[in-house]
Nucleic acid binder design. Structure first.
Length: 597
RNA sequence: GGGGGCGUAGUUCAGUUGGUUAGAACGCUGGCCUGUCACGCCAGAGGUCGAGGGUUCGAGCCCCUUCGUCCCCGCCA
């Protein structure tokens, strides 16, 4: 039944033929998407990468071809020769670009058969993700993943072309590199020729790209895989792709300007969307105050507000304690929620914030005839009225409150804000809201380790006017750092780097690194800084996250050809796997866990 | 490390208070069908109810343990 390809070659793809091609003799190849057998005439939707074309096999035209076509099943690979014909009146298919025509098959080759696929490869069937992941090569045949990966390709193609045109040079950096135990956990690779030693896979090429600036490349980029051994999320994979960029002789504004141009170009070329020049900026402090998060979703206007002053000394113990213990009370006016939300909605929202660490969810519902709330009797009428006024709440609104330590309040109130935005229909899925977040603190206090930690990374430069604070008040220092946020997702971040070795030494000293640690981890880098390092800075974008947003996907896995599960396994290849003793022995390795079952 | 959802036919799901032989749709197989396009009609096959243990006269359903997957917290310089 199966034939060789022989000298047959395609003349067209399956998305090429139009009414203007009627009468042409063509050769098409592809997969059987679906067979419709009418006893007499048989229709097959032939699929290749580009699209679908209906081919027709009828006993009148060629009896042998028709008989062979009765054997066709889903996902058989076939080649046909035939003539392009107009479809009979009334049988045009407006859903297909090729829907005006069909191909009357004169010769049919079955190039390969297929066993029955475990799920239907159409756009209609919902299939659970674990099944899709096990048969990823089949899932990739379906329209959704196929178009996602094609769009991802268009994104990286545009990135490359734009950066080439701006004089950026594509340089590769090592995957087998040195472990730097700061930051995320490293993936380690044991070295056979250096017993007992390991390489680490890079969490990012941070030091290498700075070394390329020291080396004088001036403008560097790389679309590069990075590895972090941390727990996964819907937007996090253990290996992910960055667009990594570094430039010399520039300051923040120069770099941000070029990156805006890059995204304007991507949106134009990939989506056909024209973006305005001059992305808005916001300070870290403003983002935390109004959105409770350093990656604000600016597509909709619901804002958090700290109301410590208004509720200070009120009769509600939860609020009072938050204020007194240097925490905060934050309010959020859900405009119009009064009508939209049932009691159960509010209960569900309460469960939601409690699961994120809240003690409960206080609220005041503003009705025409007064305030409805379990907490007004504690707050007091005056304070309640003041809060309503401060939040500019009108009848039909509900004010929600969070109280406690700042970190927890921001965590759940920011998530509540997003949930309310969705429930109230405030989020326009077609909107693309960029914002630069600036003026990050340089350092944050690590309460466990009782030391300062770099918020971004230890090579980030402080603002020029803040450098003196290293000796007096490190917590007050602001960084020359910038994050680019799109629709509430941090798609990239970077900074102007420290290019003077004396400042870098100060940074390491503030982070509490001993001389030995410094020399062991960063010695080569500190040396390099002494050889005429130009002022430089850079940024890295999460290519997977950008692709997730542009394809309107809900998970990063939907824009990665072969992703890992939440436990960092591959359901298709079954990686990671046990290693046999011989291989381990060569690496001088022994595991202290149960061996192969 | 912690919290939550899900797990029943190839797939997506239903399965009442614990009670006879576990159902539906799609897919699959066979038959019929000459203008369909998620074709239609008829018939049929298809089950380790994730796994293990327990309670019970009796478990898909209750209890315990465990595995897988998804979402979240911690973690992610």
């Amino acid at each position: 039944m199966v034939s060789n390809l022989g000298d047959w070659r395609r003349t067209h793809d399956c998305n090429a033929l139009r009414a203007s091609d009627i009468g042409k003799k063509v050769t098409l190849m592809g997969w059987v998407q679906r067979r419709r057998d009418h006893g007499g005439v048989i229709f097959v939707d032939l699929r290749d990468r580009e699209g679908l074309t209906q081919i027709v096999m009828s006993p009148e035209l060629n009896k042998a071809v028709h008989e062979k076509a009765e054997n066709l099943r889903s996902e058989f690979v076939i080649a046909i020769k035939g003539e392009v014909a107009a479809r009979p009146e009334g049988s045009l298919n407006e859903k297909l670009p090729t829907g005006e025509v069909e191909v009357n098959v004169e010769e049919l080759k079955i190039l390969n058969t297929s066993i029955v696929p475990p799920f239907m490869l159409d756009e209609y069937s919902n299939v659970s993700e674990d099944v899709r992941l096990k048969y990823r090569y089949l899932d990739l045949r379906r329209p959704e993943l196929k178009s996602n990966l094609i769009m991802r390709h268009q994104i990286t193609k545009t990135m490359r072309e734009f950066l080439y045109s701006k004089g950026f040079i594509d340089v590769e950096t090592p995957f087998l590199t040195k472990s730097t135990p700061e930051g995320a956990r490293d993936y380690l690779v044991p070295s056979r020729v250096n017993p007992g030693k390991c390489y680490a896979l890079p969490q990012s090429p941070q030091m290498f790209k700075q070394l390329l600036m020291i080396a004088g490349f001036e403008r560097y980029f790389q679309i590069v895989r990075c590895f972090r051994d941390e727990d996964l999320r819907a937007d996090r994979q253990p290996e992910f792709t960055q667009l990594d960029i570094e430039m010399s002789f520039i300051d923040s504004k120069d770099l941000m300007g070029i990156m805006e141009e890059l995204f304007i170009t991507i949106f134009d070329q990939v989506l056909g969307v024209k973006l305005e020049k001059g992305f808005p900026t916001m300070s870290y402090d403003e983002a935390m105050e109004k959105y409770g998060h350093d990656a604000p979703d600016t597509r909709f206007e619901l804002y958090l507000k700290t109301i410590n002053e208004t509720v200070k000394g009120c009769g509600f113990k939860v609020f009072n304690e938050a204020v007194e213990k240097n925490g905060c009370v934050k309010a959020l006016n859900a405009i119009g929620a009064g009508k939209a939300f049932s009691r159960k909605d509010i209960d569900d929202l309460t469960d939601f914030v409690v699961s994120l660490g809240a003690g409960g969810l206080a609220y005041i519902k503003v009705n025409e005839d007064g305030l409805q709330s379990p907490i007004v009797k504690f707050l007091g009428e005056d304070v309640a009225a003041a809060v309503v006024k401060e939040m500019d709440a009108k009848p039909g609104d509900i004010i929600f409150f969070g109280a406690g330590d700042k970190y927890t309040v921001n965590l759940y109130m920011s998530k509540l804000r997003l949930k309310l935005g969705a429930m109230l229909g405030l989020i326009d899925r077609d909107k693309h809201s960029f914002v630069w977040v600036l003026d990050f603190p340089l350092l944050e206090w690590d309460a466990d380790g009782k030391r300062w930690a770099a918020m971004h990374h230890p090579f980030t430069s402080p603002l020029d006017e803040d450098v003196a604070l290293f000796d007096t008040d490190p917590g007050k220092m602001r960084a020359k750092a910038y994050d680019l946020v799109l629709n509430g997702s941090e798609i990239g971040g970077g900074s102007i780097r420290i290019h003077r070795s004396d400042v870098q030494e100060k940074m390491f000293a503030t982070l509490g690194l001993t001389e030995e640690e410094k020399a062991y981890k960063f010695g080569f880098f500190i040396d390099a800084l002494k050889y005429g390092t130009p002022p430089h800075g850079g940024i890295a974008f999460g290519v997977d996250r950008v692709a997730t947003i542009l394809t309107k996907s809900t998970s990063i896995r939907d824009v990665i050809a072969f992703p890992k599960t939440q436990k960092a396994t591959c359901l298709m290849s079954d990686a990671p796997s046990f290693i046999d003793d011989k291989q381990l022995k060569e690496l001088y390795m022994k595991f202290e866990v149960a061996e192969n079952k």
